[in-house]
C-alpha cells in the first residue's frame, strides 16, 4: 500500500538516538522476559529484609514490605509497554479519526474541534485527574484515561495535517477521477499521515509514562499492588531519607526511558514531510 519506511537513515549519525533505541529495546526485553529475568517474586513480602540497601541478593535493595526492588522494576517494564501502547492505540485511533473527519467535513469539524478545544483547555494532568476520580483504579482505566487525554492533542495535530493534505493537488486529482469521500479520506489522505503519526506515537508513548507515573504518585493511577515504576516511587516516598535508593532507581528508570523515547521521536521527526514537522512538536 505504501512506500516502505526505512529505518536505517533515521539513526545514521545520531549516537544519542541510537543509545535511546537500545535502551528501549532493553525495556522491551525486560517486559517480555520478566518471569525469567526477575530473581524474586515482585509481590512476595519478606518481613526480615525490609528496606535493605542494594547488595546481594537484592541488587536494587528491598522496599518497606521487603519486596525485591529489582524484580519489581523488571515487572514494571511491562506496565511501561502496556500503558504506552494502550494509550497510543486509543489516542491515535480516536484522535486520528476525529481530526481527519473534522478537517474533511467542515461543519462536523466546527462541532468536534470545539469539544476538543474545551478538553485541551485543561492541562493534561488535570484532565487525567478529573477523569480518574470518576473511575476506579485499574490498569485498563488508566490506559483509557491517558489515551483520551492524548487523543485531544492528536486530534488537533491530525486536523491541521489533514487540512494541508486536503488542499494538495493530488486530492483534487482523485476527486476529478470520481473518487468518493471514503476513498479520498482513507486511500489518499490517510497513507500520507502514517509516518507523521508514527512520530506522534513515539512522543505520546513517552508522555504517557510521565502521566501514569504522576497518577500513580498521587494515588489515582494503577492499583497500589501492581509493580510499576510510578507506584514504586509513590509507595516509598516517605523513606526518601532512610532508603533513597528506593526512589533513585525507579526515578532514574522513568527519566531514562522518557528521554530515550523523546530522542527516538526527534530522530523520526527529521525524516518526515517537512511541512508536518511543526505540527508534531505540540504534544
Amino acid at each position: 500500500m505504501s512506500v516502505p519506511l526505512s529505518i536505517a537513515p533515521v539513526f545514521r549519525g545520531r549516537a544519542l538516538a541510537t543509545i535511546g533505541a537500545c535502551w528501549l529495546l532493553v525495556v522491551g526485553i525486560a517486559a517480555v522476559g520478566a518471569p525469567l529475568l526477575a530473581p524474586f517474586d515482585p509481590l512476595e513480602f519478606d518481613p526480615f529484609v525490609r528496606l535493605s540497601s542494594p547488595g546481594w541478593p537484592h541488587l536494587f535493595g528491598t522496599d518497606h514490605f521487603g519486596r525485591d526492588s529489582l524484580s519489581r522494576a523488571i515487572y514494571g517494564a511491562r506496565m511501561v509497554i502496556l500503558i504506552g501502547s494502550g494509550s497510543v492505540l486509543i489516542a491515535l485511533v480516536a484522535g486520528g479519526l476525529i481530526g481527519m473527519l473534522s478537517a474533511y467535513f467542515v461543519r462536523l469539524g466546527h462541532l468536534l474541534m470545539r469539544i476538543v478545544d474545551v478538553l485541551m483547555a485543561f492541562p493534561a494532568l488535570l484532565l487525567a485527574l478529573v477523569l480518574m476520580t470518576l473511575l476506579e483504579r485499574s490498569v485498563l482505566n488508566t490506559v483509557i484515561v491517558i489515551g483520551i487525554v492524548y487523543a485531544t492533542t492528536t486530534a488537533r495535530i491530525v486536523f491541521g495535517m489533514t487540512l494541508k493534505l486536503k488542499r494538495d493537488v493530488f486530492v483534487d486529482a482523485a476527486i476529478c477521477s470520481g473518487a468518493g469521500h471514503a476513498s479520498v479520506l482513507f486511500r489518499h489522505i490517510l497513507p500520507n499521515l502514517v509516518s507523521p503519526m508514527l512520530v506522534q506515537a513515539s512522543f505520546i508513548f513517552a508522555f504517557a509514562q510521565l502521566q501514569a507515573a504522576a497518577l500513580d504518585f498521587l494515588g489515582l493511577g494503577l492499583p497500589p499492588e501492581v509493580p510499576s515504576w510510578g507506584n514504586m516511587l509513590s509507595e516509598e516516598r516517605i523513606y526518601v531519607t532512610r532508603a533513597p535508593w528506593l526512589l533513585i532507581f525507579p526515578g532514574a528508570l522513568i527519566i531514562l526511558s522518557v528521554f530515550s523515547m523523546n530522542l527516538v521521536g526527534d530522530a523520526l521527526r527529521d525524516n518526515i514531510d517537512p511541512r508536518f514537522k511543526d505540527d508534531i512538536a505540540g504534544v
Binding site: 493537488v169 483534487d172 477521477s177 468518493g180 476513498s183 497513507p191 500520507n192
Partner: peptide, 26 residues
C-alpha cells in the same frame, strides 16, 4: 483535468498501477 504541477498532482503513496486503476474501477 490535467494539473500544472506534476510533483504535487500524483499521490506519493500510490504505485502507478494503483493510480491508473482507480478511475477505471470507479
Amino acid at each position: 483535468m490535467v494539473f500544472q504541477d506534476p510533483f504535487a498532482s500524483l499521490n506519493p503513496r500510490l504505485s502507478i498501477e494503483q493510480m491508473l486503476a482507480e478511475p477505471l474501477f470507479i
